[in-house]
Design a protein around this nucleic acid. Structure first.
Lengths: 175, 175
DNA sequence: GGAGACATGTAAGTGGTTACATGATTTC
DNA sequence: GAAATCATGTAACCACTTACATGTCTCC
């Protein structure tokens, strides 16, 4: 799902500034999407051009905050794009790519790789756990729990088989 | 990790045609990477330009198979890129995006979404299970098991909580 | 008045995808 | 000899990242 669609969804309940939208995406939706400013502002510009969104500068000065608000057309557009959404999902993993070719790597590099993935996975789990689950909708909570389930599985795996492979490779190489 | 790096890795043990490389990536590495021809051939061209790879047409006719072979420089390049690899990993999920905003969706759409995700997840699990685990290296096997662990967690979740949310939403809406 | 968070925006580049065009080889 | 699969390649486009440039507001 492209960023502009996500923006519409975020604007549904309340008008927001670009900056706020970015923060919301990278925290509340951070387990399956993210947004850089270089992508966000052009996306908002395109939404405004197609009249899915309207904006105005807050205050009287020429510069400063710009508040984006979704239009009736925007709500319609969003619903259509949402209904078209397939159940698609994609994992891209530098970690797995590196492990796939780990015969080319030293044991130290392999250990470092697993440690780093484990560290980040735990970090991300903490961030998910820190979200205000109680104030979220059923669907939003489901996305968090789904992500959490996968993270936990990955952590368990890395702690078990991930560690085991290090000794296995060590045996193979130095025997 | 970019596609050209993956290509080098695939070419490590044997020379291959572009077509073969694509098939290998989309099956054996399909759980964390994929390649379209429109990305693959330009990538191979770039690798050849930088002399990481060398190629020649098989047979004497002008057209037909082109066999790519990694060079000494290519092996070096690959090792460097592999060592630079971070433990990064990213999930992009249209499914989660749609579920996040599922208040805008009908119950039928939600059910369809969950069914489709479950179906694909099982399909992908079957594909992983069909890989020739026995003939793979330790690292390669690890990537398959890791992906399998996450898939199984996702399937379990969708069968349990995924189903439960449908009735929860139904109660909320028609009460 | 300085630091740091809040805020907007552009330009160049990247790493692809999709669609198309073409031809060779194998199998029935 | 038709269909399927193997095989190579290009052009147009896409959605985004990175790096940069700039300015505002709030708190100490």
């Amino acid at each position: 799902m492209k960023l502009s669609t996500i923006c519409l969804g975020v604007l549904l309940p309340n008008p927001r500034t670009g900056y706020e939208i970015q923060r919301i995406i990278n925290t509340s939706l951070g387990h399956f999407q993210h947004a850089s400013f270089g992508a966000l502002y052009p996306a908002l510009g395109a939404l405004e051009a197609e009249k899915s969104v309207r904006s105005e500068r807050a205050g009287s000065t020429g510069l400063g905050k710009r508040l984006y608000e979704i239009t009736a057309l925007g709500r319609e557009t969003f619903q259509n794009r949402l209904r078209e959404a397939s159940g698609g999902e994609e994992l891209r993993s530098d970690f797995l790519a590196a492990m796939y070719f780990c015969e080319q790597l030293s044991l130290d590099d392999i250990t470092r790789l697993i440690d780093e993935r484990l560290y980040r996975q735990r970090q991300e789990r903490r961030e998910l756990l820190a979200l205000p689950l109680a104030s979220m909708s059923d669907g939003q909570r489901l996305t968090v729990r789904y992500a959490l389930a996968m993270k936990s599985a990955a952590i368990d795996f890395l702690q078990g088989e991930g560690r085991a492979i290090e000794t296995a490779i060590q045996r193979e190489r130095y025997q």
